[in-house]
């Protein structure tokens, strides 16, 4: 007989483990990555590969030489951060920009807090925001032009055509620019490249992950089916954005963008499906998650419609990340309270 193993119950474990969950997130991000590669070819491959590699290497080195702990690369969380970072950067980002991003994400936003599970802010988003405020020209619209000779292997004809139409800016940036010039909303929306179908399937301009709403939705559905995440955060963000933006738009259609455009444009879907739902930086209870989502939705629209930046999802998520410890103080509903003394 083997030497008996003894432990307290339970004696079996479910199928879930950290690596499998992270692996599922990676699979869910694949449609968005593939769309990006479809359009931009080698540039997109370069972006994703450098980003993932840099994140993994940074995590490995920091864990080994600074924290002196067991390697945590195997849990795949650095890969997820790498892909998310890539999807948050413009396709033609230079390699050094990606490296800085990866260092900020892993080195500053994740490992300084103690590694996986300890960080307060979403690493990829911290990196994006640091890059956005440090290198605004590279990170926003004007840098979105094709490299010389076009995109290798990419669908450059389509890409260039659409890019020309919006003078290289992201849809949100373009709208904001035009509004500032005094052009009315109805006229702006008539510009080619801003139709709903285009937003849904393949819009251009914006970061690598914002190209196709459909690809992101596919990934989200996959995560839900695999029970990796619950839908509450994402749904509450989307509903809040729709309702809040809708109210503003009904108030003054000439000045504010309509709610559907708000849902489909910018990084909202990427943020709502993949960034806000990050386990580590989102609340534990359903009630907390709904409040978290509503907060993100409101802040996003406030920044989009009244702020200086055309896009506010990343800021909104980071601001709400900081409220998570507070939201986690909301206790879940108990099975039953103590009986009332008669």
């Amino acid at each position: 007989m083997n030497t008996l193993i003894v432990s307290p119950s339970p004696h079996v474990h479910g199928k879930d483990n950290t690596r499998r969950l992270m692996g599922d997130v990676i699979i869910a991000l694949m449609p968005a990555v593939l769309v990006s590669i479809w359009f931009f070819g080698l540039s997109a491959i370069h972006l994703v590969c450098v980003s993932v590699l840099a994140c993994v290497v940074f995590e490995y080195l920091i864990q080994k030489f600074l924290l002196k702990g067991k390697s945590t690369v195997g849990d795949l969380s650095a890969v997820v951060t790498g892909i998310l970072l890539a999807l948050n950067l413009p396709v033609c980002s230079p390699w050094w920009l990606i490296l800085i991003g990866a260092f900020v994400a892993i080195g500053i936003a994740k490992m300084t807090f103690g590694g996986l599970g300890q960080n307060l802010f979403n690493p990829a988003l911290v990196a994006r925001v640091v890059l956005l405020v440090s290198f605004p020209v590279l990170m926003t619209g004007t840098a979105f032009h094709a490299p010389e000779g076009g995109y290798l292997f990419g669908n450059s004809e389509f890409a260039n055509a659409a890019l020309d139409a919006t003078s290289g800016a992201t849809p949100l940036g373009f709208v904001k620019e035009q509004l500032a010039k005094g052009v009315s909303m109805q006229e702006i929306m008539a510009t080619p490249g801003l139709s709903y179908t285009q937003l849904l399937f393949a819009r251009l301009g914006g970061s690598a992950g914002e190209l196709s709403a459909i690809a992101l939705i596919l990934g989200f559905i996959y995560l839900l089916c695999r029970r990796v995440i619950k839908p509450w955060i994402s749904l509450s963000i989307l509903i809040t954005v729709f309702v809040f933006a809708g109210a503003l738009w009904l108030g003054n259609p000439a000045k504010f963008t309509d709610p559907v455009f708000n849902l489909l444009s910018g990084g909202l879907l990427l943020g709502a499906f993949f960034m806000a739902t990050d386990y580590v930086t989102s609340p534990m209870t359903t009630k907390g998650q709904v409040i978290f989502g509503i907060g993100i939705g409101v802040i996003t629209i406030l920044i989009r419609e009244f702020g200086a930046y055309p896009e506010g999802v990343s800021f909104a998520i980071l601001i709400m990340n900081s409220t998570v410890p507070l939201l986690n103080r909301i206790q879940p509903k108990r099975f039953a309270k103590e009986a009332q003394k008669k």
């Binding site: 030497t3 008996l4 193993i5 003894v6 432990s7 307290p8």
Partner: peptide, 22 residues
């Protein structure tokens, strides 16, 4: 000699509440 393999939380109190020890 160890006669069983203890596989739970590594605190003495947990083992003591479970059995005589490994």
């Amino acid at each position: 000699k160890k006669t069983t393999i203890y596989d739970g939380l590594a605190t003495c109190a947990t083992i003591a509440s479970l059995y005589g020890g490994d």
